[in-house]
Computed example of a mutant assay.
Amino acid sequence: MSVLIAIPARYASTRYPGKPLVPLTGATGKPMTLIERSWRAAMSVSGVDRVVVATDDDRIRAAAEGFGAEVVMTSESCANGTERCAEAHDRLGGGYEIVVNLQGDAPLTPHWFIEDLVNGLRAAPEAGVATPVLRCDGEALNGLLNDRRNGRVGGTTAVFATDHSALYFSKEVIPFTAETYAVSDPTPVFHHVGVYAYRPDALAAYPSWPVGPLEQLEGLEQLRFMENGRKVLCVEVEAKGRQFWELNNPQDVTKIESMMSAMGLE
């Protein structure tokens, strides 16, 4: 089953303009842009036939081609990463059986998250799209809660049914829990990992659907599938000792750099 990874990247981010070109310094002290780190994460995934950066910005194109990435130029009208992946897949001529959207703000995504995601979608023919979820420990949950207390939109959380079909995604911390957890304690909260795997028919249909009220309120693209009656499969993944965080705000740069240094990542 052929697999394409597309990394959507735009310069004009509302919360963090120029985010793909922000340098991040890891354990070696060598700065590397966010988009290059995301591309390297994609290139480490096994069983993938092709990796492309999908962008509408010449600055990102030049940077990506400079470190050896294949680039697909897409239109400025793409409202989110899913629309950009749909256009990129179409411009490449289609034909891939699974398209993975590895968003360009997730440089800490380990290869097994994506491998498990693709395998999960393959095993669920009734699902048109799948996305990983990671159970928060006490430290991760406290990080999410701290962002909200300080007025920042940080990570997204997910709740799902017993068959792992998504019930809802939110930038609020759900479900509510009044308990206090130690740093390493497992919690009932699942961090949504910003990666998607689509079947081509679901991906092609997505841009034709209007933005619904839930997607508009939350600013979460995956809710458009749910608002149009498409099943979104949540695939639980394991951290295996790796820390995970996405670069959503300028304050996340220091946090991610500290995580990379602690894990010995370049």
Rank of each mutant, 00 (worst) to 15 (best):
Y206G: 08
E139Q: 05
V22Y: 01
R122L: 11
M73R: 11
L217C: 09
Q243D: 15
V133W: 04
A182G: 15
G155E: 15
A178Q: 10
R37D: 01
G93R: 09
W112M: 00
N228W: 08
A130C: 06
T82Q: 00
P207M: 15
M260G: 02
G66D: 04
A9F: 13
K171M: 07
T177I: 07
F244K: 01
N119Q: 11
A197F: 08
V195P: 04
S46C: 06
T180P: 01
T187H: 10
V159H: 07
V235K: 05
F169C: 02
L141P: 03
L214K: 14
P210W: 07
E221V: 13
R230C: 06
E218A: 13
R10M: 03
Y168D: 09
E236I: 03
R61A: 15
G155H: 11
Q222R: 09
R91D: 04
Q251T: 13
S258I: 07
S38A: 09
A130W: 11
Y196V: 02
V253H: 10
V118K: 00
M260I: 05
R10F: 04
L92W: 12
V45S: 05
A6N: 04
E126A: 13
P132V: 02
Y11G: 06
L214Q: 09
A204E: 06
V51F: 06
R37C: 00
R59L: 08
V52L: 09
T156G: 00
E36L: 11
V53H: 07
A88S: 12
D56P: 03
R122A: 04
T254K: 15
G128Q: 10
G120K: 02
N142L: 02
T187C: 09
V51N: 07
Q243F: 08
K240A: 15
S46A: 14
D58F: 11
E218K: 13
V118P: 02
R242E: 09
R224E: 06
G104N: 12
G94Y: 06
M259D: 13
L217E: 10
G155Q: 15
T33N: 09
Q222A: 15
I98P: 00
F190T: 03
F176I: 03
V52G: 00
M73S: 15
S184Q: 11
D56T: 08
A54R: 06
R59F: 01
E266Q: 09
A88V: 10
G154Y: 01
S44W: 04
A161D: 12
G95R: 01
M43N: 04
F176C: 05
K255N: 00
D90Y: 10
A106K: 09
C78G: 12
L145Q: 14
T55M: 14
M32Y: 01
H89S: 09
A158F: 10
E115V: 00
R37L: 04
A204S: 13
G81L: 07
L223P: 00
W39N: 00
H192L: 08
A86V: 12
I256L: 12
L223N: 03
V99N: 02
G47E: 05
R40F: 12
G18P: 06
L108Q: 02
D116K: 08
A69Y: 10
S46R: 15
P23S: 10
D137C: 10
D201E: 14
V45D: 04
V173E: 03
N249H: 14
D252R: 12
